[in-house]
Design a protein around this nucleic acid. Sequence first.
DNA 1: CGTATATACCTAAGAAACTTATGTATATAA
DNA 2: TTATATACATAAGTTTCTTAGGTATATACG
Lengths: 112, 112
Amino acid sequence: MYSKELVKGTLKTIILKLLSDSDKMYGYEITQKVKELTGGKIQLTEGALYPTLHAMEAQGILTTDVVNVGNRIRKYYTVTSAGKKIARDKVSEFSDFMDTMIFLLDLKPKMG
Amino acid sequence: MYSKELVKGTLKTIILKLLSDSDKMYGYEITQKVKELTGGKIQLTEGALYPTLHAMEAQGILTTDVVNVGNRIRKYYTVTSAGKKIARDKVSEFSDFMDTMIFLLDLKPKMG
DNA sequence: CGTATATACCTAAGAAACTTATGTATATAA
DNA sequence: TTATATACATAAGTTTCTTAGGTATATACG
């Protein structure tokens, strides 16, 4: 687990990237996917995730589709085309930021 | 200039790295150095910088040395040995975090 | 001589983006 | 029956910044 400050500011970028790469995901699924992909190093909290999803829906970045699974509710989120552009921009900006930080902190990045 | 959220959480790491690589620097000098090294992409604000420097001094991470240059004051900051360990840890954690983000966002990092 | 810009320090109010805590409810394994 | 997992949600509090303001000297421009 990374210190809290570090992960701050990356939440929207992470959500939009994951949603852009699949047609739909629900909130809890996003938390589990991030946990799995990062080996538990990044664990999104629900208190941060849900309000962010609601805000992005209100902004027209995401649309929702509520489904009943058994007796439980699932709220699937899909990125709109406007959202996909924002996703690309955010990932691109983050990539640029990392290059800048790598230079500033004099780091050697690993190969992709 | 990057969006505000992105740079959040990296201030201490940047300050400690720069101070670790030189015996001493003063506040204004740090802002100018970061601006220069990042081509203006990261510009530290004084409202964030000074309180952070003061806090790190209070925590024994930095020590100060006030010097008169002409009729102006300069407050030089030096990293303590305890601070150097924190600096290494912070840079290392950030490096690890970037590797995680590169994988999560499916990015191709540039060579160092 | 006045004004703008650069240098150099500082604090405080407010905003942003979280964390922590709490709540609801179903399903399943021990 | 108790804990853990699934699945949603909100709200109070905290951290960390931005924005705005304040003080003061030095220098360049017209």
